[in-house]
Amino acid sequence: MNQAVLQIENLRVTFNTPDGEVAAVNGIDLNINTGDCVGIVGESGSGKSQMFLAVMGLLASNGAVSGSVCLMGQELIDLPVNRLQAIRGNQVAMIFQDTMTSLAPHLRIERQLSEVLEVHRGMSRTQARAKSLEMLQAVRIPEAEKRLRQYPHELSGGMRQRVMIAMALLCDPQLLIADEPTTALDVTVQADVLDLFDELRRELGVAVVMITHDLGVVADICDSVAVMYAGRVVEQGAMREIFQSPQHPYTQGLLRSTPRVDSPVATMVEIPGQPPNLLAMPEGCAFRERCAYAMDLCASQRPSLASADGRPQRSKACHLNQLEAMSR
């Protein structure tokens, strides 16, 4: 019953820079099925955005991608641009963090919405307008009719993000990628927008990828989560389990640095140190320099992502055995 929506295999994203080749994403496998809501969590620079920009085929011009990305069984890597264009915004949609700059400042909301339908559905202007209005109402934008005539700067941040969500859902995509959709919003608006995501994905059955650096934000709405560090997945599993018993030292650190509703903010602890330089990735475990449990083995051999607890749904990339992790 659970059909595969997105299958990523050994995805690598590299950038050509004057200082050398930067490996932003370094061999990632990920499967997303219909109805899934997957959280992608990691510190700034861990490769979360580039991984999914690669899925969309929207890397910067100095970027290169290898591996395999299958959307509904169709390979996207090296697909000609015109074929990709037919898929983007149609079968897979992506929304971004900074709503002020992510909407065209000089175009009315109506134009920015209806053009998606005109391009992908061949709708007339009037049809597209009606459907756009419907969609704005579906994302619970007050006075939707009026919003259609407005420009992005006339809307609040929360409303702009709702417009982005509406825009993404116009063509009933199978997959919605949300790159830090609530980071720029006020805390109260954040909760509203997350609720909206949850509601919409259940209603529409769209698979959702939630990119965030804050595990707490997606804890309630994601079923599973992949934790990224320096371009790799270091821990993966069901949201609840990872939230309750993180096994990778990095995940544990992330959770400690996450402000939690049920504990005073004062207990927040940042993970000490910096992520490794992607230009010169160290041998062994990339987290070694910052890991309190680092052993000799960690310096010589990179831990591969393997099932933890002997269960295929739960995996981590760490040499530490489970017992040691429990007694942190």
Binding site: D98, S102, L103, A104, P105
Partner: peptide
């Protein structure tokens, strides 16, 4: 390089629209 051009591309608009509708005026 701006974010809204990335959005326009993420929407699957053909290059002609991205350039003439989204990029030209600004």
């Amino acid at each position: 390089r701006s974010n809204y051009i990335r959005t326009a591309q993420a929407k699957g608009l053909p290059m002609r629209l991205v350039l003439f509708r989204h990029a030209l005026k600004p």
